[in-house]
Amino acid sequence: MTGGRRRGPRTFDPDVIGDAEARAWASYYRREWRPFLRAAVEMVHEGFGMSRLRSLRGAYLVLRANQKWAPYPDNDPEAARAYMRRFYALVLRDHDSDLRLDPGEASRREVEWWRRHRQHQYGAAGGDQPLVDSLVELYSYVYDVPGDAVREAARQRVLAMQHSDAWVKAGCDLADPLLAQEREALLASYRSLRAAVGS
């Protein structure tokens, strides 16, 4: 429980999720899939309040989606969307009264921000705004809130990506202080998101 309340999509602990996502990103870029899975289990469990077993299943789907997305430039976006569609369908079965979404549309928006981040990361798109907008489109759809309410959360998450991208270019050293900056931006992002969607 978090603050005596059931975990869920609107009652998550932002610091737990932000910390877990920071570890997941570091593991992703180092292609360390077991630590990635452990962090993903924590993110799914805290973010959606599912049982440990269902959280493991959901985290496995997220892992497989990321593995399909990871190769550059020859990744498999369609397979990544298919795994994320299954993930959102699993979430919806637990939270059909809390979330009203179509798993296909949610997965499309999820992988779209991955695509825009990759363009940004490799210099194929200028400026942060398209990436911020794609996160706003995902958050506002999944949580059914106005885009302006989640724009700061999106902006902070993009800032975290900038720190992450710099860390990757510097060699993915776990002792690099860029990781701490990435984590702080993720914490700020999830705190803002929790304030925007909280019930």
Rank of each mutant, 00 (worst) to 15 (best):
Met1Val: 14
Arg5Met: 14
Arg6Thr: 13
Gly8Ser: 08
Pro9Ser: 08
Arg10Leu: 08
Thr11Tyr: 02
Phe12Tyr: 10
Pro14His: 06
Asp15Arg: 15
Asp15Lys: 12
Val16Asp: 04
Asp19Cys: 10
Ala22Gly: 14
Ala22Gln: 03
Ala22Ile: 06
Arg23Phe: 02
Ala24Asp: 03
Ala24Leu: 12
Ala24Glu: 08
Trp25Glu: 06
Ala26Tyr: 04
Ser27Trp: 06
Tyr28Gly: 03
Tyr28Ser: 09
Tyr29Val: 09
Arg30Ile: 12
Trp33Glu: 06
Arg34Asp: 11
Phe36Leu: 14
Phe36Pro: 00
Phe36Val: 04
Leu37Asp: 05
Arg38Gln: 10
Ala39Ser: 10
Ala39Lys: 05
Ala39Asn: 03
Val41Asn: 07
Val41Ile: 14
Val41Pro: 04
Glu42Tyr: 03
Glu42Val: 13
Val44Thr: 02
Phe48Asn: 03
Met50Thr: 15
Ser51Lys: 09
Ala59Leu: 01
Tyr60Lys: 09
Tyr60Met: 11
Leu61Cys: 05
Arg64Trp: 09
Arg64Thr: 10
Asn66Phe: 14
Gln67His: 07
Trp69Gln: 00
Pro71Thr: 08
Pro73Gln: 10
Pro73Val: 09
Asp74Ser: 14
Asp76Glu: 12
Pro77Phe: 11
Ala79Leu: 10
Ala80Glu: 08
Ala82Arg: 11
Ala82Gln: 06
Tyr83Asn: 07
Tyr83Asp: 06
Met84Asn: 10
Arg85Ile: 02
Arg85Cys: 05
Phe87Leu: 11
Ala89Pro: 02
Val91Thr: 11
Arg93Phe: 03
Asp96Trp: 14
Gly104Asp: 11
Ala106Lys: 13
Ala106Asp: 10
Ser107Cys: 06
Arg109Trp: 05
Glu110Trp: 15
Trp113His: 15
Trp113Pro: 03
Trp114Gly: 02
Trp114Glu: 01
Tyr122Glu: 09
Gly126Asp: 15
Gln129Asn: 08
Leu131Asp: 00
Leu131Arg: 00
Asp133Gln: 04
Leu135Lys: 00
Val136Cys: 00
Ser140Cys: 08
Asp144Ser: 15
Gly147Ala: 01
Asp148Ile: 03
Ala149Ser: 15
Ala149Asn: 05
Val150Trp: 07
Glu152Pro: 01
Glu152Ala: 09
Ala154Trp: 01
Gln156Met: 03
Gln156Gly: 00
Arg157Ala: 07
Val158Ala: 00
Val158Gln: 00
Leu159Phe: 00
Met161Gln: 13
Ser164Gly: 09
Asp165Ser: 11
Ala170Trp: 07
Cys172Lys: 15
Ala175Ile: 04
Asp176Gln: 02
Asp176Val: 12
Pro177His: 05
Leu178Asp: 02
Leu179Cys: 03
Leu179Met: 06
Ala180Thr: 07
Ala180Lys: 07
Gln181His: 13
Glu182Ala: 15
Glu184Ala: 15
Glu184Cys: 05
Glu184Arg: 15
Ala185Asp: 01
Leu186His: 00
Tyr190His: 13
Arg191Lys: 07
Ser192Trp: 08
Arg194Cys: 02
Arg194Thr: 06
Ser199Thr: 14
Ser199Tyr: 11
